[in-house]
């Protein structure tokens, strides 16, 4: 009896906590700072530099939202989260949004009560093998030992893939990506599997990247994107449309270099005008100033610029656009119209 009273009280407190967490936008404005959950360190996607300044592909999304809402891309309080703590941090209100290479799945969207604001990177699970193994397809990996990070969706995907193809493998469980690199290089496993973006980043750090090849098969869908809590749709809209603004900016050729010039006076393209606030009242519809998108784009550039700067082909990580090209270039990156 006593126990049930206690748990009842706890549940009520928990519900009360959920109910009072509406108006995130007001909280952020009052605080003057955006609490953004990021990864504790993933090459290209988010890590602090030598001066403690966070940078990376996911980090740029936080900065863009901060710029749109507060007008200052540095007004972000980065909260490092691990795979275990990220969802609780978001659900409990410790962070306002999570931009931490998180895969959009059914249960996370519904059961865990989050809203994905969109996809900023289409990833998928792949394999890396030494060239000398002479393997050209993942289907040739029958009987191979595979290094795999435990407790991730990649583990389940791997089991599914090998079962579907009726081949066998021997898993070598590892804890972190860094450990996996060491094990793989030491020859403890024939192949290493994780998200393709991670494989590319890992291969880039090898002494002789040419001795290793990433197999063509992508065995899972991993759409990664920023997410917010259920229950505050206004805030969700802001994050969603900030991301869309970055994507649309690339499509219309608005870059960090020319955004100020384009926003100074209405131009010929009415959609660009609406996006940059020289025409219409889009900003007011989401409770922001009319130049919100201009500020977001000026913070770190459009989607393409952010991609090239952090993980693109000219960086050590060297990812090609692939699926993450604009839809006009055969990719999946597509922003709904600004109207």
């Amino acid at each position: 009896m006593k126990k049930s009273v206690l748990f009842g009280a706890l549940t009520v407190t928990g519900l009360a906590a959920g109910a009072t967490q509406a108006a995130t936008l007001d909280d952020v404005k009052e605080r003057g700072e955006l609490n953004c959950g990021v990864v504790t360190g993933l090459a290209g996607f988010g890590a602090p530099d030598a001066n403690g300044v966070w940078e990376g592909f996911d980090v740029s999304v936080c900065r863009a939202v901060a710029a749109a809402v507060l007008g200052d891309p540095t007004a972000v309080n980065f909260v490092p989260t691990t795979g275990q703590t990220r969802f609780t941090a978001l659900a409990s209100g410790e962070i306002d949004m999570l931009a931490r290479n998180t895969t959009w799945t059914f249960s996370r969207d519904t059961d865990l009560k989050f809203d994905f604001a969109g996809v900023n990177y289409y990833d998928g699970q792949g394999f890396i093998v030494p060239t000398e193994l002479g393997v050209s397809s993942a289907k040739d990996l029958d009987g191979a030992t595979v290094c795999i990070q435990t407790g991730t969706t990649t583990e389940l995907n791997l089991a599914d893939f090998f079962r579907n193809n009726n081949i066998s493998y021997e898993p070598v469980p590892v804890e972190t990506n860094a450990e996996a690199q060491q094990q793989y290089l030491a020859g403890a496993c024939d192949a290493y599997t994780t998200d393709a973006s991670g494989l590319a980043a890992t291969r880039a750090t090898f002494e002789n990247p040419g001795d290793h090849v990433i197999l063509p098969e992508i065995i899972s869908k991993e759409p990664l994107g920023p997410l917010v809590r259920h229950g505050d749709n206004e805030w969700g809209d802001i994050v969603r449309w900030t991301l869309n603004a970055l994507i649309a900016a690339e499509e219309f050729g608005v870059t960090s270099a020319n955004v100020n010039e384009l926003a100074s006076a209405p131009g010929t393209n009415p959609e660009v005008n609406r996006l940059l606030g020289t025409e219409g009242e889009l900003g007011a519809m989401i409770g922001l100033e009319n130049d919100w998108a201009k500020r977001a784009i000026a913070a770190g550039g459009n989607y393409g610029e952010i991609f090239e700067k952090n993980i693109g082909e000219n960086t050590p990580i060297g990812l090609a656009r692939g699926l993450n090209a604009q839809w006009t270039n055969g990719g999946l990156i597509y922003a709904p119209p600004f109207r």
């Binding site: 990864v39 504790t40 360190g41 993933l42 090459a43 290209g44 988010g46 890590a47 602090p48 530099d49 030598a50 490092p80 972190t176 860094a178 690199q181 060491q182 980043a201 880039a204 750090t205 090898f206 960086t315 050590p316 990580i317």
Partner: peptide
């Protein structure tokens, strides 16, 4: 934790 973060920067990725 910081050793992880340092390893995630492009300059020091791969150091162990």
């Amino acid at each position: 934790g910081l050793s992880n973060a340092i390893r995630a920067s492009t300059e020091w990725n791969g150091i162990y």
